[in-house]
Nucleic acid binder design. Structure first.
Lengths: 210, 210, 210, 210
DNA sequence: TATGAATGAGTGTTCATTCAT
DNA sequence: TATGAATGAACACTCATTCAT
C-alpha cells in the first residue's frame, strides 16, 4: 500500500492555490533534476521555472533535499494508482504475460517520470537522494512481492521477497539503461529485460514438479 | 583491449615520487567520491587526504573531471589485469562455473574499488562522469562478448553483444545494490545475481537442440 | 550624446535601496581601483568596503569587468552633466578662455573621480578596461569636436576631429601626470597644459588670414 | 647620465651564459608584458618562453616586480645609446628639425620596445611598475632638458625642466595612443604630435624679442 | 502570506615563490 | 649551479538559505 511516509512539508498546503504551487514546483524540480542532475539544479532555477518565488519554495520545502523526498513520495502515490490500474494480477494470465504487463507499465511510468531514475539510483553519488529512492524502491518491491505470493503460494516468503527485489533492481537498471539507447534500440532492450526477468524467475522459483 | 584513452594528465609523472603522488591522489579521490559523491567531494579535500597540496593536484590534473577520467582509466587497466588472471574461459568449465568465476571476480573488484559504482552510473546526475563510465562499461562488455562467442559460436554475434551488455548491466546494478545490504545478506544477493545471469542466458540463448 | 551603452547590470535596481547599494559598490570599486589598480583590487574587498555582501555585488554585476564598465558609464553620464553645465561654448569667450574653462572643468572632474585615470588608460595592461575607457574617451572627444567646429567652421572636419582627439589625449595624460605631482606644483602643470593645448591648436589650425 | 640605479639582481651574472639567460628572460618578459599586461603575464610563462627554468628566473630576479625594474633599466641603457646616436643636438638644425629627429627616434624605440608603454604608464593601476617607469621618464626628461638649455641658454632653467617634462609626457601619451591606431593613421598622429610639441614650445618659450 | 533582495560560507582553480634534489 | 616539483594563500564567483518588507 505504498505508504505516504514522513511529512517533509513545512506547511500543509490547504488551499487549492498552494497545492497547485507545490505541484508546479515539483514538476520543475523533476524536469531540472533530469536535465542537469540533482546537484547541478539550483533551487532558484526550480522556483523560477515553477513561476514561484524562491521564498515560496522554502515556504513549502525546508531544503533542497526535501524536494527529492517529496518527488519520491509523489512517485509512490502515482505508482500506487498505476499498480491498481495496470498491474493487476489477472489469474488467467501466464507468468510471461504478467511480467510483460508489469514491465510495460513501469516503462511507461519511467518515461513519464524520468526523474525516477536519478531518485532510484542508490546511495552513492548523492546521499541526499538515498532515503527518498529507498522508499520508492520498497514500494515497488512490496507490490511485486504481493503478486508473487498470490501466484505462487508454494514459494518460501523470504525467497519471494528476494525475487521481488531482484526483479525490481533488474528492471530499474535496464530501464535506466534504456534512456541511453537510441530510440530504435529501446524495444529490443525492453524485450531483453522481459527475457531476463522470466529467465530469472524460472530458475529461481521453478514450478513445483507436478 | 581495454585501451588506455586520452591523456588527462597535465604532466607525465616521470619520477617514481610523482607517480606515487598521482596514485595517492587517485586513491583519495576514489575514497571521497564514494563517501560523499562526485559533486560533494572537494578538490581541496582530495588533495589533503592524499597528503598533497592543492597546487600539486592541479599540477597533474587539469580539473576535477579529469580525476574521474583518470580513475576510470585506472580501473580499466586493473580490470585488464583481473580479466587476464581470473576471468579465464576455461573450456572444461560449465557455463555455471564460468558465470560464478566472473561474477566473483567482479565482486572482489567492486569491493576493492568501490568508486567503480559511481563511475559506472549512467549519464544523469553527473554528466562529468558519463564518458569515463561509458568507457569502463564498454571494456567489460567487450570481454564478456568475447567469452560468449568463444563458447557459443553458434550464436548470432549481435545477440551475443546484447547478452554481454545485459549481463554487465545486471551485474553492475546488483553489485551496487549489494553495497547497501548488511554484510550477512551479501552472499545471498550474490548467489541470486548468479542465478539471474544463468537464468537469463539460458533463456536468451538456449543450447542448440541436439 | 554620451550614450549609456550595453546594460551591465544583472538586475535593474528598481528600488531606491538597491540603487543606493549599486552606487555604493561603484564608489568602493572606484576607490579601490585607484588605490590598488584594477587587477589587485578584489571583488570581496570592493563588496566589503561598500558594506555589501559579495553575493550582493554579484547580484548586480555579472563579473569584475562589469564593475569597470559600469564605472565608465557612470562617468559618461556625469560628464554629460558636466559638459552641459561647465563646458559651454560661450561665443564671447576667446579661445584661451574656452580652453581654460574646459581644462579646469576636466581637472575638477578628474579630482572628483580619480578612477577615470585607470579607466582611460589604453589597452595594454588591463584589456578589461579597454572598451570602457574607449567609450569614455570617445564621449569627450565628441564634445570637443563639436565645440571646435562651432567656433571654427572654416576648419576641415577631419582636422577638427584629429585636433579634438589630440586635445583630449594631451589633457588626459597631463591630468594623470598631475596626480603624481606634489600639491603646490599642480597649478603649475595645469597652466602648462593649457599653454600646450593653446599652442597646439594655434599651430594646428591657425586662424584664417584676414 | 642615465644612471644604472639600484641593483635589482640577486647575483651579478658574471659568466656569459648567465648574462645571455638574463637577457632572454627580459626579452620574454617584455613580450609577455606587452601581449598580456603585467598582471596577466605569469612568471612561469616568462621563464618558459625564455627557455629557462622558473628556478633560474628567481635566481636572477627576486620577484616579479624586479623584472619590470630590470626591464626599465635596460631601456634606460638602450635609450642612452639611442640618445648618443640619434638625438644629437646639431646646432645647424632648426627647432623643428630637432623635434622631428627626437620624436622619430623615440617612435622607433617605442616600436622596438613596446613594453616601454606599460612601464611608463603612471602610478595607478600597477603600483609595481611605478618606480621603474619613473626612472625611465626621468632619464628621458633629463636628456631633453639638456638639449633645451644648450639651445636656449636664455631660458629660465626651471622653465626648461618643465618644458622637457611636458614634451616627454606629451610624447609618451601620443606614442602610446599610436599603438591603438590602424597602421595607416600612425604617420598622421605622429605628425600631429610633432606639431603639438612645436606649438607648445613656441608658446611656452617664445624666442627672445630681437 | 508571499516576495526576492541579501547573505556569506564554500567552491574550483591560479600562480608567485620556495627548496629538495 | 640549475632544476622544476611542490606549496598554499588568495581569487572570482555560486548558490542554498534567510528575513525584512
Amino acid at each position: 500500500m505504498l505508504s505516504p511516509a514522513a511529512q517533509p512539508l513545512r506547511r500543509a498546503p490547504k488551499q487549492a492555490r498552494a497545492q497547485q504551487r507545490v505541484s508546479r514546483i515539483l514538476d520543475a524540480a523533476e524536469e531540472l533534476f533530469v536535465e542537469l542532475g540533482y546537484d547541478a539544479a539550483t533551487t532558484n532555477q526550480i522556483a523560477s521555472r515553477a513561476n514561484a518565488s524562491i521564498g515560496s519554495l522554502y515556504e513549502f520545502f525546508p531544503n533542497k533535499q526535501a524536494l527529492a523526498q517529496a518527488l519520491a513520495e509523489r512517485y509512490i502515490e502515482r505508482l500506487g494508482a498505476l499498480i491498481e490500474e495496470r498491474m493487476v494480477n489477472d489469474p488467467s494470465w501466464t507468468g510471461e504475460q504478467l511480467v510483460d504487463s508489469i514491465v510495460t507499465a513501469l516503462d511507461v511510468f519511467w518515461r513519464r517520470h524520468p526523474a525516477t531514475v536519478p531518485l532510484l539510483r542508490g546511495s552513492l553519488g548523492a546521499p541526499a537522494l538515498m532515503s527518498a529512492g529507498e522508499q520508492l524502491r520498497m514500494a515497488l518491491v512490496g507490490h511485486i512481492e504481493t503478486i508473487l505470493l498470490e501466484r505462487r503460494p508454494d514459494v518460501d516468503p523470504e525467497r519471494a521477497l528476494l525475487a521481488a527485489e531482484m526483479a525490481i533492481d533488474l528492471t530499474r537498471t535496464l530501464l535506466e539503461r534504456i534512456q541511453a539507447e537510441p530510440t530504435h534500440r529501446r524495444p529490443v532492450v525492453l524485450r531483453e529485460l522481459k527475457i531476463a526477468i522470466i529467465g530469472y524467475l524460472r530458475t529461481a522459483m521453478p514450478p513445483p514438479a507436478r
